[in-house]
Nucleic acid binder design. Structure first.
Length: 203
DNA sequence: GACCCCTAATCC
DNA sequence: GGATTAGGGGTC
């Protein structure tokens, strides 16, 4: 189709039009209903207006000029319009649409660049969360062990009074089901134990 | 008033 | 159905 050809009338049915009206209202909730109707009427009235498709040469030159500079000053617009035999408004619209296409392309490229980075980060996050869960479980287990040990030690200390020394060299946890190597740790000076428990309480 | 954004209409 | 042209509202 050459520049200047008349575009045929819309083949959209009334029902289709109403459906489109609905989607427009969803996306432009701020637009009053009356205004939407008026807008549709205006659009329909302009159904006879010419919609000019640019020919290859015009498109090629516009692309070239766009490559030189994406913005369009008044002088440049008028010159281009004369050069291509187009309405200056058309030139402005073309540049506007071209900038929009350029922007969406850039957004798409940025997305494609960021996506793998994002995906790696998600996997890493998953691993770290797993790690945190495991560490929390270990911490709970350790806290439980400490609680049991402190209880047994307290009982042992209480049982050795009165007349007991400040040192207790008995294996305090023997008989409480604690592993051998852990039991060895139980030869603790009573004062050290108290200090330790105070620190633990502080935490 | 130029520009951006969303959208409809139309082309291919 | 994607690409293109153009209308129209909103913003600065």
């Amino acid at each position: 189709m050459e520049n200047g050809d008349v575009v045929s009338e819309s083949c959209m049915s009334h029902e289709e039009g109403e459906m489109m009206l609905f989607s427009a209202s969803e996306l432009h909730p701020q637009m009053p209903r009356g205004e939407r109707r008026a807008r549709r009427r205006r659009k329909k009235a302009k159904g006879d207006a010419k919609k000019r498709r640019l020919n290859d040469e015009q498109a090629k030159l516009l692309e070239m000029r766009f490559g030189e500079d994406k913005k369009l000053e008044l002088g440049r617009k008028l010159r281009l319009a004369t050069e291509l035999g187009l309405d200056p408004k058309q030139i402005a619209v073309w540049f506007q649409n071209r900038r929009a296409r350029d922007k969406s392309k850039q957004v798409e490229e940025a997305y494609l660049k960021l996506k793998p980075v994002h995906d790696v980060a998600v996997v890493e996050k998953c691993h770290l969360e797993n790690e945190v869960m495991k560490l929390k479980e270990r911490l709970l287990e350790a806290q439980e062990k400490i609680r049991k040990l402190s209880l047994s030690m307290k009982e042992a200390v209480d049982g050795s009074r009165p007349g007991s020394s400040t040192f207790s060299h008995q294996p305090l946890v023997a008989g409480f089901g604690v592993a051998e190597e852990e039991a060895e740790l139980m030869y603790i000076q009573e004062s050290d134990f108290s200090n330790y428990m105070m620190e633990w309480a502080y935490f």
